[in-house]
């Protein structure tokens, strides 16, 4: 039996519970929509402009840096698991691996790209 089936069950049940709760709410709660109620909430004033505002490029950069380190971690997890049985060379390889990426982080930092401004 594939162990992932359990995981799938957890996910299914994990989805069923909120769905059930929301459905319960949908059944039990009143429904009296009107345009004012359904307008978007903007601190109580009239909605101004479009909801889609232009975003800072920093969002992209953070996500990008995160992506890179995420992939890095993917490589490092097998390394870490096996580290106890491997020699020093493996540690050094890992350190080189990390250091190379830290260079990227430093680059981004030194270029001021990690600042929120």
């Amino acid at each position: 039996m594939n162990e992932w089936l359990y995981v799938a069950l957890f996910m299914i049940v994990g989805a069923i519970i909120p769905i059930g709760a929301i459905l319960a709410g949908a059944i039990l709660s009143p429904k009296k929509p009107n345009p004012i109620k359904q307008s978007t909430y903007e601190c109580g004033i009239e909605p101004v402009g479009d909801a889609w505002v232009q975003f800072k490029v920093q969002y992209y950069i953070f996500a990008l840096v995160f992506l890179v380190f995420d992939v890095e971690a993917v490589f490092l997890f097998p390394w870490a698991v096996k580290l106890g049985q491997l020699g020093l060379y493996a540690v050094v390889e890992g350190i080189i691996f990390i250091s190379i990426l830290v260079v990227g982080l430093l680059y981004a930092w030194r270029k001021g790209m990690l600042e929120w401004s």
Binding site: V57, Y60, L64, L67, V68, D70, V74, F75
Partner: peptide
């Protein structure tokens, strides 16, 4: 497969940066 992940990550990050 893992290397492909890395390649995909690199491709996406650089590609989207170019797009932006």
């Amino acid at each position: 497969a893992i290397i492909v992940f890395a390649v995909a990550a690199a491709e996406v990050s650089a590609g989207l940066a170019l797009v932006i």
